[in-house]
């Protein structure tokens, strides 16, 4: 099973996982990493690496960040090779629901494509 880590500013990662739990129940190997703006970058990197370790049961880990243009996105640039993880920017609930559903049967690469496509598809504009 592919592990999932959500990294973002402040309460967003935890809030997202709480919302996810409300929708589809408690999930294993899903870890949130909240980043406080005042924290040192090295401490933040260590927190992310630890989360990847916790989420990994041997099949790999996919990391989601709030935005590639945020501290989370930039931090991942510096450690993605070391952590050996792929990163999806612009995390949203529909993409997380889809990857939870299919993470037992997909490769990390396929799951990353699926997450990106599902996330894009879910952003729609509805008018009255």
């Amino acid at each position: 099973m592919i592990g999932l880590v959500v990294v973002g500013l402040d309460v967003l990662p935890e809030a997202m996982l709480i919302a996810l739990q409300c929708m589809i129940g408690k999930q294993d190997k899903v870890v949130a990493v909240p980043l406080a703006p005042s924290e040192e970058a090295d401490g933040q990197r260590q927190a992310i690496l630890k989360a990847v370790e916790l989420a990994d049961d041997g099949d790999g880990v996919l990391v989601f960040v709030d935005s590639m243009a945020s501290p989370a996105g930039y931090l991942m640039l510096s450690i993605m090779e070391q952590a050996d993880v792929d990163v999806i920017g612009g995390v949203n609930l529909p993409m997380l629901c889809k990857v939870i559903e299919l993470r037992h049967e997909s490769s990390v690469e396929d799951l990353a494509k699926l997450a990106r496509d599902e996330g894009r598809k879910a952003i729609t504009w509805r008018t009255p």
Partner: peptide
């Protein structure tokens, strides 16, 4: 800052 975070 972004370069520092990105490890450049």
């Amino acid at each position: 800052k972004c370069c520092e975070l990105g490890g450049f």
